[in-house]
Design a protein around this nucleic acid. Structure first.
Lengths: 209, 209
DNA sequence: ACGCAACCTGTCCTTGTGGACAATAGCGAC
DNA sequence: GTCGCTATTGTCCACAAGGACAGGTTGCGT
């Protein structure tokens, strides 16, 4: 079975394009990034893009305006004929929803497409395990829980709840204390973490920026 | 269609087990990690494990011998009723092939199972985007913008500013409009994204939970 | 015994936020 | 030309949040 959604196939490589026809019941072919805009305006959102088909001197596709302006609304599966971890990170950070080998088995591609079509991200085993290793070794837990260090146990609990968007009353009920007490703890948390409100706290806790 | 492969369902939660029956044509239920060894010895390799069903005082499942001795040969999809980035990293590093919400839609679970069954890894959008951020901290705002879909251009701008913790006045100044207008846009954003306030918006935008 | 830190609670007050009513103007589609 | 969407701005109001004063009780180390 192939994806029922219309699919934009973007590659200058005719052989690749032919192979990928099988991925969707209604595939459309384009050869340059300009096709992205019209695809989005037509109300579609699924696209598979071959990154490896362009000569090296050309700027990386994901840095071009045509990509940046449309990646937000599209579910893009980027592929490369010579996958590279750095490239993978770059395209994913640029808004792609998946990254895999251009000549991966058609079944694998289909699965990857299903995943990105459903709104999730698809990252190959190699890149993903490298990500895990990087996070596990280079920051063995530093960046993730660094915020909790200066806090007391209770403050940590309150901060965690607040960072998930719960109201003071909700937190109070959850912890079996008064709203006033929650406020007291939060005041201490804001002070210690040098933030002004619960939204900044949430950003800090969840490692944004 | 459900996975043709036999599936080991490992949870003390009866309701969960019943829900998960639909994931495989031949599911087998077990309630503790001891089931992993016999499952592997029987030549099977697919298992879904609920991490959240055990009381907190118990040692984490992935630290127990039954897990460590069998994870290498099995394709394990770990689930939690309260997913947590720390926990996710821990189980993936312990050899699990996937991590997602215990009560995720059955289609999502099925997809995750398909992916791990095929030898790949499955990591949810929230955790994965955070991994990407951690590894490549220099990304300014890229990526993961599925949330922007139903929004107009202006709403997107306002939402983006709000998700970074800016006040309505600050957003108004930044965009050269009135605070009232910012409110109007935000009202539409909240409506379209089905959130109640700017903190929930921030969590959505930054891929938390 | 004393200090101190963690934890808990109380009352005011100011401000930001979000919702409930509005209205006006532009611009593309039918 | 009308319909609908977008962008813009207005006022009024209820409420949560956070700061500014308070206070209180534990328990632990010196």
């Amino acid at each position: 079975m192939s994806t029922p959604q219309p699919l934009l196939i973007l590659t200058p490589d005719d052989l690749l394009a032919e192979r990928w026809q099988a991925l969707s019941a209604s595939p459309i072919r384009a050869v340059d990034l300009g096709g992205l805009a019209t695809w989005r305006k037509a109300g579609h959102r699924l696209a598979v893009i071959d990154l490896g088909g362009y000569p090296p001197p050309a700027p990386a596709p994901w840095t071009q305006d045509a990509w940046r302006n449309n990646a937000a609304d599209l579910a893009i599966l980027a592929t490369s004929s010579r996958p590279d971890d750095e490239e993978g990170l770059a395209v994913l950070n640029a808004g792609a929803c998946g990254y895999c080998h251009s000549h991966a088995p058609i079944e694998t591609l289909r699965q990857a497409l299903d995943v990105v079509a459903s709104g999730e991200l698809w990252v190959g085993r190699a890149l993903l395990s490298r990500l895990l290793r990087l996070v596990d070794s280079r920051l063995p837990r530093a960046g993730l829980t660094e915020w909790a260090h200066p806090l007391t146990d209770r403050e940590r609990e309150v901060a965690h709840h607040a960072a998930l968007g719960e109201s003071n009353i909700a937190i109070a009920d959850a912890l079996g204390i008064t709203e006033r007490t929650v406020k007291a703890h939060l005041k201490a948390v804001f002070e210690k973490l040098q933030v002004t409100d619960r939204l900044q706290l949430a950003l800090r806790v969840h490692g944004v920026r």
